[in-house]
Amino acid sequence: MSSRENILSKIKQNQPELLPLPDLSVLGSEKYDLVEKFTEILEGIGGKVLQVSDIEEIKNYIISNYPINARVISTLPAFSDNRDWQTADPHSLKDAEFLIIKGQFAVAENGAIWLTESEIGQRVAPFITQYLAIIIEKSSILPTMHQAYEEIGSIDYGFGVFLAGPSKTADIEQSLVLGAHGARGLVVFLV
């Protein structure tokens, strides 16, 4: 008998009698101002949140805050017409300084933003660039993870990520350092 059959038959023999799944509908009833909560939480974990009125404001912010000659990539036509990077060897993104994308939705309780391949263009993109900017529609902020998974529903994707803030570590004596391996900074533009 193969290991597969061995393991599965032993599990079948040893597992206890079937127990029911709990009801999840009682969870996630938290009430708070979604924009306020999202902002407070995300800033608490190292992200920067800016409320903006239009794309121009975002462009101006980027120009005045990031090196102009650095390599900026985006999946949004307003920021870049170049799409080649999305199908290029992921290693070729190693010199990309800045990625600007739009998030599907965000979660107030933990500052997380849901992204799939269609938003990020390349799986490695939001991790390999030095800095990251994400545009979020205020109306897309949900209270908790329970509503978040309802929102995702059965939509198909190959890869998806809840991203909450910049990359970080506290492995050296519990001192928080931003920029472990992923993006060193995250700015979220709320529109």
């Binding site: 974990i45 933990n110 809840f162 970080k168």
Partner: peptide, 8 residues
């Protein structure tokens, strides 16, 4: 509140 990356 959550890890930075929860990758699916």
């Amino acid at each position: 509140p959550i890890t930075t990356y929860s990758s699916h």
